[in-house]
């Protein structure tokens, strides 16, 4: 399978190297002539020097035969145009763009790019997973605050992981109403066993909310 990588930075180089190691036929387009010569030697791959957003350069790099094009240029607008030209002019089925502005993930999808990846968003996600931030999301308060619906995520060392629902000593007037797992949803029963990364939909009252959270999630709650 042939892959085209457009970019001049270290990431582009390591990505190309990875693809070659995995047995792909990788081609690179870089703007920097000196870097192009170096990379061609180091990678033993075709490296085309030029503007990856220019149809003539894309054509020269053999974009027509590529199954996937990855655009890693420093400006979002260049990555968009490179992907669109690959898709619309040369019929490349899948395009991947790096975006710096996280909002562009959605914008690029609407403009026909297969996948747009924001490093900023990915980092925030990884960091939040590390610190357990946003493991508790308050979804709604009903009946003048007498009832709360909360989504919690079972992360890391949450004590409820591996437990059957019936064995958790949840107080009265509290309910685990749904378990969201691997993009599917379960209405749990007593025998449902909770797993790492389960999202639980809780229905609680103010007097037992804190107790429920600490039973499920432990000290972090």
């Amino acid at each position: 399978m042939k892959v085209l990588i457009i970019g001049s930075d270290k990431t582009s180089y390591y990505l190309t190297r990875r693809f070659i190691a995995k047995g792909y036929h990788a081609v690179m387009i870089t703007r920097d002539a000196q870097q192009g010569r170096q990379l061609a030697r180091k990678l033993q791959a075709l490296v085309v020097v030029g503007d990856g957003t220019d149809p003539l350069v894309l054509d020269e790099a053999g974009v027509r035969q590529c199954a996937i094009v990855v655009a890693l240029l420093p400006h979002d607008h260049d990555n968009l145009i490179a992907c669109q030209l690959a898709k619309e002019m040369f019929g490349v089925p899948r395009t991947v763009a790096l975006v710096h502005d996280p909002e562009n993930e959605e914008v690029f999808r609407q403009l026909g790019v297969s996948v747009a990846v924001s490093v900023a968003r990915l980092l925030v996600q990884v960091i939040e997973e590390q610190i357990g931030y946003e493991a508790i999301i308050n979804l709604a308060e009903l009946a003048q605050g007498q009832l709360a619906i909360t989504e919690v995520v079972l992360l890391g060392d949450a004590p409820a992981i591996g437990q059957h629902l019936r064995d958790l000593a949840l107080p009265d007037n509290a309910l685990v109403a749904a378990v969201i797992r691997d993009d599917g949803a379960i209405i749990p029963r007593g025998e449902t066993q909770l797993q790492l990364n389960d999202h639980l939909l809780l229905v609680t009252r103010p007097d037992n909310h804190g107790i429920v959270l600490s039973i499920l999630m432990g000290a972090t709650a």
């Binding site: 957003t53 400006h75 979002d76 607008h77 260049d78 968009l80 145009i81 669109q84």
Partner: peptide
């Protein structure tokens, strides 16, 4: 003065 900005 940038084609790609204009197109985006």
């Amino acid at each position: 003065n940038n084609d790609n900005v204009n197109l985006m």
